[in-house]
Amino acid sequence: MTAGVAAPADTLLRLCDVHASYGAVRALHGVSLDVARGTVVALLGANGAGKSTTLRVISGMLAPAAGTVEYDGERIGGRAPSNLVRQGLVHVPEGRRIFGEFSVEENLRLGAFTQRRADTKRALAEVYEDFPILHERRRQRAATLSGGEQQMLAIGRALLAQPRLLLLDEPSLGLAPLVVREIYDIIRMISGQRGATILLVEQSAEMALEVAHRAYVLEAGRIVVSGTPAELRGNESVRRSYLG
């Protein structure tokens, strides 16, 4: 994959040879990946592999040092996150970044900041339908929610921005297995019913490979393996490092 080759029309996101660093610390050394419209793509890797950094570059939190990021046929490297949210590129970051002092409903209203008021009412009702627990707790301060509830709030809030591409950073982190199931049901629902494209970062590959159409494995800032979930399951070293 080289920078000169135009992406096929069904490619929503394309990274070409992206390098990124935090000051003197280099985190990505030439990451290339494609995300096709309407698919779920998993990005796997161990601690410190550069998964979150990749998402940060895509959503504009971090400008790439080199390489190109193309979203919907447009180069977006260096654009502000708030600007990209308006284009439907929505990032649920590591640590969720819930506004703990705000009520649950205020968090959701913030998610709809870029949307028209009239659309928000209906969208909010839809999110409450999908996440009844959020409706129950809508007046509560978000910091008082449990970890699973906070993750639902983070995802629900992102849905209110009407994402076309949703970046999810370790949505299952720190959650009980039952709650992880619930979150993954929601991810399936978002991909299926809403037709959103999802780039999903996970450390535990098992669940991610269940929903993904395609997966990439990052190691020390480089993509080392890519393929369909079946292909990755068949790969001996991937099995050893990331599965059971």
Partner: peptide, 14 residues
């Protein structure tokens, strides 16, 4: 004020 990056990710032109 609470979290500038978080607000930016909500589409707020901070």
């Amino acid at each position: 004020a609470a979290d500038r990056t978080g607000a930016e990710l909500m589409g707020v032109p901070t």
